[in-house]
Simulated scan of single mutants.
Amino acid sequence: MKTKRYCYACDLKDDSKLIAEYKAYHDEGKAWPEITKSIKDAGIVDMQIYLTGNRMFMIMEVDDTFDPKKKAEMDANNAKVQEWENLMWNYQQELPWAENGEKWIPLERIFKL
Rank of each mutant, 00 (worst) to 15 (best):
K4M: 07
C10M: 14
M1Q: 04
D14S: 12
T52E: 14
D64Q: 13
Y91P: 05
Q48I: 05
A76R: 13
K80H: 09
C7R: 06
D27Q: 15
W104I: 03
E99G: 00
A42T: 08
K23M: 14
L113N: 08
L107R: 00
W97R: 00
T52W: 08
Y91T: 05
D27A: 15
A9Q: 10
N100I: 10
L18S: 04
N77W: 12
D75R: 13
K69V: 03
P96N: 01
D75Y: 09
D15H: 14
Y91I: 07
K13L: 15
Q93P: 01
E94F: 00
K2D: 07
W84F: 10
D41A: 15
L18Y: 10
R109F: 03
I39G: 03
F57Q: 10
L95S: 00
H26M: 14
A9S: 10
K23Q: 15
H26G: 10
W84T: 01
P33H: 03
F66W: 04
A9D: 04
M58C: 11
D46Q: 09
K71Q: 11
M47K: 10
D64R: 02
Y91K: 06
K23A: 09
K40V: 09
D11Y: 12
E28T: 06
E99V: 03
M47I: 09
K4P: 00
K17D: 15
A98Q: 02
A72P: 04
L51V: 10
G29M: 10
M58Y: 02
